[in-house]
Write a protein that binds this DNA or RNA. Sequence first.
DNA 1: CTGAAAGCGCTTACAG
DNA 2: CTGAAAGCGCTTACAG
Lengths: 354, 354
Amino acid sequence: MGIENGKIRIKDVAKKAGVSTGTVDRVLHNRGEVKEETRKKVIDIIREMGYTPNLIAKSLASKKLYRFAVIIPDANNYTPYWEKPLQGVLKAAEEIKDFNSIVDVHKFKGSDENSFRKVYAEVLKCNPDGVVFNPKHKKASLDFVKLMDEERIPYVYLDVDLASGNNIAFFGQNARQSGQAAARLISNIIPNGSEILIAKLAGKKLVSHHITLREKGFIDFFKNSNNCDCKFKSIDIDLSINTEPSLSLKKIFGEHHNIKAVFVPNSRVYRVAAFLKENNLQRTICLGYDLIQPNVEYLNLGVIDFLIGQKPEDQGFNSIMALFNHLVLQKKVNKLNYSQIDIIIKENIAYYNL
Amino acid sequence: MGIENGKIRIKDVAKKAGVSTGTVDRVLHNRGEVKEETRKKVIDIIREMGYTPNLIAKSLASKKLYRFAVIIPDANNYTPYWEKPLQGVLKAAEEIKDFNSIVDVHKFKGSDENSFRKVYAEVLKCNPDGVVFNPKHKKASLDFVKLMDEERIPYVYLDVDLASGNNIAFFGQNARQSGQAAARLISNIIPNGSEILIAKLAGKKLVSHHITLREKGFIDFFKNSNNCDCKFKSIDIDLSINTEPSLSLKKIFGEHHNIKAVFVPNSRVYRVAAFLKENNLQRTICLGYDLIQPNVEYLNLGVIDFLIGQKPEDQGFNSIMALFNHLVLQKKVNKLNYSQIDIIIKENIAYYNL
DNA sequence: CTGAAAGCGCTTACAG
DNA sequence: CTGAAAGCGCTTACAG
């Protein structure tokens, strides 16, 4: 090893500068206590020799333990989706554990803002070095962000972009654009003049901003394309009512006989698929979001025609890695990170659903 | 650090076993020279304490330098595609360089088997620790593989699966399945009874196995689905002839007036798109492979309707990482690794073409 | 303000 | 067959 290998070590820099390795380390990390003159000299030599630190050695020698906290909704019947980002988070945790870094996962009840507040208060008590969280509750999230800014704790938004705050990164989908892609797929297939049902299924009367944007993108596509003159029927369905979504869907399909496609702007599309299957409406084009198990089943049955995926595992994984790169490796990280808008059909799902 | 931290070190194992760290290291790496009795004892204690090596320390201490060789076609006018796997390879190289591992890239002329043979002979002279290569030339590749088996050099297939040999992994697409996905997308759109043109464009009369499989998958889909009774017209076009593909396409479209879709089972689809645009045939559904620049442009113009992507960067990246995991980290690696079959349209390409 | 030394967990000759 | 010691490139008290 050493210079002859092309790899410059601190020792090499120190020697050339006529100082000790300790001094080089001090200027490397701006730890002060160095005469300006020698600092300059060392800096110059670092540049000149093209020194780059050996991350391996750095990590081994460092006593600092990095703790990252993750705050996401608890996966449940309405939102099995959140299992996926969690998987990614845990994979990242495994990958960075030899680098003195650990990840703590904290869950809150997705629909309950107070639960989120309680969890973030706990997290702050632990003094994490960095935080990844899902800011679905806007107001509470803004309060949280303010506290982290005061403590100079870096944070990453997952799934939803708060669009304010000093987050080092955001990982999620461009919701509006995904609606446009959905629209293209449907408009390709259905005849001119068809009716399209937009069914927003929610656990409790909570239709998030996300969902609204997907719908907006969807409708805008048709508005801006002159080759499909379709009519929309948009409804909200409250799944906490026992008889839903059957009741509402039956009514709609009874009243509108020219519905050629259903667009469900979230992961509850399997509930619509069940209805379509029971009522022999499989020929209706059905498109929804996310590769959760029941959706995959209806896709394979041919009831759901398209699913839009967004690689939630990757989002979880990359969120942690962003924190790690920022804090531990001190690499620059991109702030705005839109996931791919994956188009999934029966014929390609095998290679996504891993 | 140490036990109180939950992390067991070699030192801890040695102490409990009443031996030195050197001895533990010997049993850990099966380096022999250990009495069977002490070997057993150490093994037991390793299990009991749940020792796992610290990869960071391992890498820092190790003097062994790993050299990986990559052999891929040179990107050129006919195959700009190969830029993409190369990008992934270089990214992986960057990622593992602090782990005493370097990657050498060797290129051969894609269409020239002898060029491939020459390159692999050179590579063997360098005694690489592992090889990633594209076995498009079957016979030469089998010879190469045999030599590597003799030298016990592990190797990975990229893009094409030789389907024999002791490769530790393969990264590429399930070609037949991608043809099926393509067929589904087209059959969704075109009316019953349409004609479909399958245009196989090649640089020289070389239609690879790959391409044949894609075509097969495409046709089989229609055969097996009862709701689309379409006719196929399949042609080979030799792009090394100046007047092609115009000449052939003009003839076909002149003779067949009911062609509603063109399927191009490789990345040269942009040549067909150019023809469609010039001849005002944009309404013909056009589907091809790979996100190379000219294809992306015609997709954005609305001439190409779908592109099938396969994440070639990831394939390159993962090939190297497979070698690295196998040799350096001694992790198990999956042998058969099919890439995703990405469906790309104008509305989602922005998040793929990075 | 600066340097010498110990240590991170592992590997690698070397001595016996 | 086994152990003691040096070393990988860095960080971290500590002494001056």
